[in-house]
Simulated scan of single mutants.
Amino acid sequence: MDVGEVFEDAFSRVAEEVHAVVEGLSIERLEARPGPGANSIAWLVWHLTRVQDDHVADVAGRRQVWTAEGWHERFALPLPAEDTGFGHTSAEVARVSGLSGEQLTGYYDAVHARTVDYVRTLAPDDLDRVVDTAWDPPVTLGVRLVSVIGDDHQHVGQAAYVRGLLEAR
C-alpha cells in the first residue's frame, strides 16, 4: 500500500461515517440539538466538511469546493463564504439550518472526491513539506493531513453520538 492509498482509505472511512450518520434523518432531526449550546448533526457534518475542504485545498494549492463549485450559494447560509465553523458561538451554530442529508452528503462527497484526487498524487517525500509556519514546530503536509482526518473522525463521532441521544428520546 502506498502513501496515497493510506490517506485515501482514511478519508474514505470518514465518508462512510458521514453517510451513515445522516441517513434517513429529517431536516428537523439534523438541526436538533441535545442541549443548550450543543452542536447539531447538520452543523457537525457541515463543519467537518468545511475544515477538510479548507485545509486540503490549501495544501493542494486549489480553490475550495465550497466556493469553486457553488456550494456556498446552494446552502445559502447566513455566514461568510470563508467561514469553516471554527470557534462558532451557539447562535452561529444555529445558522447552519435548512439543510437536508442529501445536501450535506453531496457537499461532503464533492470534497471527498477532490481530497482523494489530491492524496493519490502523494509520494512519501511529499509528507515532509512544510505547509504552515505559524506553528512551532512548523506543520508538515503529513501532520496536516493526519490532523484533518483526526478532526473529521472526532466530529463525525460526535454527530453519531448526537444521533444516538436523539433516537433514545
Rank of each mutant, 00 (worst) to 15 (best):
G70S: 09
D2Q: 09
A81V: 07
I149K: 13
A76L: 06
G4I: 06
Q64F: 01
G98Q: 03
P138A: 03
A113E: 12
E5H: 14
D54P: 02
V22T: 10
S26C: 06
V148Q: 07
D132F: 09
T67P: 05
P78D: 13
S40I: 10
L48A: 06
D9I: 05
A32I: 09
L25P: 08
A10C: 01
T105C: 01
Q158E: 09
D117Y: 05
E31F: 04
V96G: 03
I27W: 12
D151K: 00
L165M: 10
G101P: 02
H153C: 08
A159E: 08
A81N: 03
L122N: 05
Q64K: 06
D125W: 13
V93K: 00
V143R: 14
H47R: 10
A10F: 04
S26R: 03
T84L: 07
T67C: 07
A160Q: 11
P36M: 03
E5F: 12
V45W: 01
V130W: 04
V131G: 00
D128Q: 15
G24W: 08
D2P: 00
Q158G: 00
A10W: 03
V45E: 01
E28F: 04
R169H: 15
A110H: 00
R129N: 10
V22F: 01
V119I: 06
R129F: 01
V146H: 01
P34M: 05
V143K: 12
V131E: 00
T49H: 09
E17G: 03
F75M: 09
D83Q: 13
R169E: 14
W66K: 02
V59F: 00
H88Q: 08
E23R: 09
V162M: 05
D2N: 13
L25A: 08
Y107M: 03
P34V: 15
